[in-house]
């Protein structure tokens, strides 16, 4: 019973951390109509930033802010250089972003080497009854809740309404005076920043290596597809459920099976659910 409770707690916390990345991806998709196949690279960027921060003796969660800033800047750059010219061709944009992901992997191996690194926990552990949780994971989950709560508040502001309008119909939003292109760039940058922050939070749970972005990319894809592409609350719920499910599968079977579960889920959900959304969006 204690074990199951431990797995449930860890799964929920992991789900919330993944939700930051998945909501970032669904925002990019909803507003920009782009499937960011480089999302995993931004998660990896965040994880490497956290790793770098731990070398200074700090906690990996301290890497979330610099990671988010780096993700924001690089995301804006990628959007302006690659995504914007290809926006009318969603498949070409997705393929180009996959190319960016490969380049990023090479960049990581040039800077940090090809070997995997583990990110150490610097803060003490908490004991709640028989459940043990690292302080880092609790802070990360709290930060995740804060980011997602901030997002909910932002969507109710004037600027947030413009964003929702652009997501619903870019042409109408443009006619209403919304600078849709600028909004798309900003959303892409913010989505990448969120992915990088999530990478920093998730770094103690992952093996940090050049190709580490592939697994979180698939998890994010599965969460976005399950929750409904472009739907923030659906993606959030799917993230928590999938985080829980993957932790259960990883614990009771073996970690690779949680990845296989995410892949099969992505396949099934894209076929039965997400494709309808892509089709309506003419993707």
């Amino acid at each position: 019973m204690e074990t199951a409770l431990q797995v449930v707690t860890s799964g929920l916390l992991t789900g919330v951390e993944y939700a930051i990345a998945a909501v970032g991806m669904t925002l990019i998709f909803g507003v920009g109509r782009v499937l960011n196949l480089a999302h995993g690279s931004f998660i990896a960027l965040g994880a490497y930033t956290a790793y770098q921060v731990t070398l200074l003796g700090l906690s990996p969660v301290g890497g979330a802010v610099p990671a988010a800033i780096a993700g924001l800047v690089l995301g804006a750059l990628v959007e302006r250089v690659l995504v914007r010219p290809l926006r009318p061709e969603p498949v070409a944009a997705a393929i180009a972003l996959l190319g960016v992901a490969l380049l990023a992997e090479e960049g990581f191996s040039l800077i940090w080497g090809t070997a995997d690194h583990s990110v150490p926990l610097r803060l003490p552990l908490f004991l709640f009854g028989h459940v043990v949780q690292g302080e880092e994971q609790l802070i990360a989950a709290a930060a995740g809740v804060a980011v997602l709560g901030g997002m909910a508040v932002y969507l109710r502001t004037r600027s947030g309404r413009a964003l929702r309008a652009a997501a619903a119909d870019a042409e109408i939003a443009r006619l209403a005076g919304v600078d849709v292109e600028r909004l798309q760039t900003a959303t892409f940058a913010v989505g990448c920043g969120m992915a990088a922050a999530a990478g920093a939070f998730l770094s103690p749970l992952l093996s940090v290596g050049p190709t580490m972005g592939r697994v979180p990319l698939v998890f994010s894809l599965a969460m976005v597809a399950t929750g409904g592409p472009g739907r923030i609350w659906g993606t959030l719920a799917a993230s928590v459920v999938l985080g829980l499910a993957s932790t259960f599968v990883g614990f009771y079977l073996a970690p690779p099976w949680s990845y296989i579960l995410a892949l099969l889920l992505t396949t099934a959900v894209v076929i039965w659910r997400a494709d309808g959304v892509f089709r309506r969006m003419q993707l």
Partner: peptide, 17 residues
């Protein structure tokens, strides 16, 4: 019966699985 974007994702996921 999928859109091209979905097809790309599904084929990628099946091979990766």
């Amino acid at each position: 019966r999928l859109s091209r974007l979905s097809l790309a994702v599904v084929t990628l996921a099946t091979a990766e699985a």
